[in-house]
Design a protein around this nucleic acid. Structure first.
Length: 220
DNA sequence: CTCCCGATAT
DNA sequence: ATATCAGGAG
């Protein structure tokens, strides 16, 4: 794999951005989705598609009291589970996927969430983003999670011009140091929620203002 | 590319 | 009223 050629100035800009992110946000590998076990994080992440993590945490709080194991989810009644997760949206697909995913984990993986990217993405409702969340937060394997915030903000920062999440993932792997791969996602989510929001980003309050390449900066 | 979909902020 | 939220599958 040919290394992406980056100018010295660009490398310094990236280093400054990462160090400012470290300064303002967490440097812990602490996930924003509440969970006690790997399989709980997997289900929470499936539920998090197009839904705020605050909402997911409200739902999982009761969900994990009712369904105490993967076996419970595997044996769950579809309509009942749909009601249990209703407020997260996409509840038909999510409920169906969670049950199928739980069944596969119980019957084929002995109830253990795999760390292999291919094994993970074969599970129902688990795509590349969810798989990388598990790899990073459960197994601490360096991985780049490209969610809506990483996609939006990486583009604005000038880290990538790609639109496809997989291409963005590989671009970021080339320019970000490996020890920041997991952290980058967590910090960008925090930044994306507080300052670099999708609508009306608060560029004036942004500590990355002078390092950002976005041409639509609102700076009066 | 389209569909899935409720809750919330603007 | 509408855009957006830790996306994934057909």
């Amino acid at each position: 794999m040919a290394a992406k050629r980056i100018t010295k100035q660009e490398k310094e800009r990236i280093t400054k951005i990462l160090s400012l992110l470290d300064e303002h946000y967490t440097t812990e590998y602490k996930c924003y989705l509440d969970h006690e076990t790997p399989w709980q994080l997997l289900i929470a992440t499936i539920l998090s598609a197009q839904c705020t993590d605050a909402r997911v945490n409200m739902v999982t709080k009761d969900l994990y009291k009712k369904y105490r194991s993967l076996e419970d989810f595997a044996a769950a009644d579809l309509k009942e589970l749909e009601q249990d997760i209703h407020s997260t949206g996409f509840y038909h697909n999510k409920a169906k996927n969670i049950i199928e995913c739980a069944k596969t984990l119980v019957t084929e993986y002995g109830g253990i969430v795999p760390s292999d990217i291919d094994a993970l993405t074969k599970l129902a409702g688990v795509g590349r983003k969810t798989a990388n969340v598990i790899r990073g937060n459960v197994y601490h394997e360096p991985s780049i999670v490209v969610d809506t915030h990483v996609k939006r903000i990486s583009g604005k920062l000038g880290f990538t011009k790609e639109e496809d999440p997989v291409k963005i993932e590989f671009e970021l792997m080339k320019i970000l140091p490996k020890d920041h791969w997991i952290l980058y996602n967590l910090q960008i989510i925090a930044h994306g929620r507080s300052i670099c929001t999708a609508r009306n980003p608060k560029c004036r309050e942004c500590f990355l203002f002078n390092l950002c390449r976005w041409e639509g900066k609102n700076d009066e």
